[in-house]
Amino acid sequence: MTALALRQDGPGTSAVPGPRRRLLGLAVALALLAVLLVLSVMIGSTSIAPSVVWDALFHSSSGIDEFAIRDYRLPRTIVGLVVGVALGLSGALIQALTRNPLADPGILGVHAGASFAVTVAVGLLGVRDVQGYMWFAFAGALIVTLMVLALGSTRQGSSPVVLVLAGVCIGAVLGGAREALQLTNPEAFDAMRYWNAGSVVGRPLDVVWPILPFFAVALVLAFAASGPLNAMALGDELAAAQGVQLVRTRALSVLALTLLAGGATAIAGPIGFVGLMVPHVARWIVGPDQRWIFAYSILLAPSLLLVSDILGRIVMRPSEIPVGIVTAFVGAPVLIALARRKKASGL
């Protein structure tokens, strides 16, 4: 789908589309997302007639199928939407912040922190359900990201390269400790096999509501930072000359992206690639303006996640493939094709 949207908008960075076309594109992306939301409720590993779906959503009937819609399909659709928005925006933020096209929210240690915390919760503390270990994941992601920032920052602020290296270091140390813990504790290993795949199944909505306020705050921060980030794309000195407060902008962006990526990982487990790929695609469609990149990422990322989740339900019926696995299969070919088509797209 993303590929289709792209082709309409043509050659990319060199010819930035005008505001009207960008708005039109945004409307198309919104419509696409709406269609996918409906499909996600309609399609599943069992076939349920549309009329039953309608009944389940708008009447309080109580057959097995109605329960299936209300208890499973609707929640996973909402989870997919929320997690997708968070991943897309956090990816756009980190790429803007580090000016590094390789940057993924995972690179700042979000995934490593969350995985490590969950392994400790599962392996040493015996926590078993998603409601229990989700807060460990959230806390782990936040703490580790702060550690990465502390390690990767100098008084003048943080150089993107050092930040990335710091993320890799801490991620590696925690990853090694986590692996050691898992290899010596078969049960923790077993429990983590699935969590590491990233999935939106079986997350009851009451694990999502408490995270939403964090996301709302992050959303506001991200758009507040988008203007200054635009200026910083031209270089720190130029931005400072235009009166941008570098330190404050960085702090706001980092706070926002940590909340977003940490929350998404807490809910769904580590889903890689969405945060890496979607902002690239958004940039290739709308050019370098961060506000537009943010807006497009917010719509395209949940679309990628929902498409992947729907595919994951039907390609191997009756069993399902976790969405974290499908996203790479859907997204990677698109990314490779784009990388071949475009001239080198630096930031």
Partner: peptide, 13 residues
Amino acid sequence: YESLSFEQIGELS
């Protein structure tokens, strides 16, 4: 080896 989603519980009937 195939994990089924809870949606499939109905199929057990």
